[in-house]
Amino acid sequence: MTDVRTDMMQQGREAHSFALGGKGAVEDFWALLKPRVMSLVIFTAICGLLLAPGDIHPWTAFIAILCIAVGAGASGALNMAYDADIDARMGRTAKRPIPRGAIEPGEAYIFGITLSVGSVVVLGLAVNWVAAAFLAFTIFFYAVIYTAFLKRSTPQNIVIGGAAGAFPPMVAWSAVTGSVDMASVSLFLIIFMWTPPHFWALALFRFGDYETAGVPMLPNVAGVDATRRQIWWYSLAMAPVAALPVAAGIAGWVYGVAAFALTAKFIWHAWAVYSLREGEKAERAPKKLFGYSILYLFAMFGSLLVDRAVSLTGLI
């Protein structure tokens, strides 16, 4: 009798757990965190942390970066939970865990909210509450303002929404200083101005996907030529922004020279996108700009680190 009841309870538990989902592998949950985006967040956050004036214990610095990374991953999970319908209709995202059926949207929401709350609370308790509040705002901005409102309603979605991806170095900066300084805004602006040409280059060669999914990206709404023009103007506007860390006093001429060369090449790629309208070269140009843009951001922040290392060691 007892055996039968235990058996029924076991079956009930299993039935319950599988009705709620529970089929996802660890790798599927890892994919919900958008690890490639997270790597960029971690890198830019480390730069913000190292460039900020003041001292921070190495362990506290590690906790700060960990919390920022987990917070970024959490907002990625919330984004995937909300956008599961869109993701299922686009070739680039159809194999994500939720559209594939490996994870239920409800599981992804619980996963995302748990990690969001956990990362903010740990950052607040172990580092400081200014950084924690900033991280909470960043998660809210990406998961609610960008994902739930902007993405489906305006072709300016990634212009405004790009702020979410640009906040991590500022969060890391505030982990050291306990405040939000103007100097850290220069790091924010580099990523903020980079985001539109980066995503519009992607949208130019994937705009069929966005059209199918009903996402109002600039090429679908304003047209391909208007997008090429916008990419060109935003890329030109990146030039003075790239010089801001030098003006703000957080970088020297090593960064200045690297930023000049890197931004000049970005503008050259953007010019190719703008000027080439037909043929194979015109089709390849946005792909080249997109590929280069990823390298560009890593290289810009990498050169900030090299610049800081050079000035600290007194090599030059």
Binding site: E14, A15, F18, A19
Partner: peptide, 13 residues
């Protein structure tokens, strides 16, 4: 109750 006997693969996951 919705019954589902998990497969070995699901148990492993």
């Amino acid at each position: 109750m919705q019954t589902h006997t998990p497969t070995d693969e699901e148990r492993a996951r």
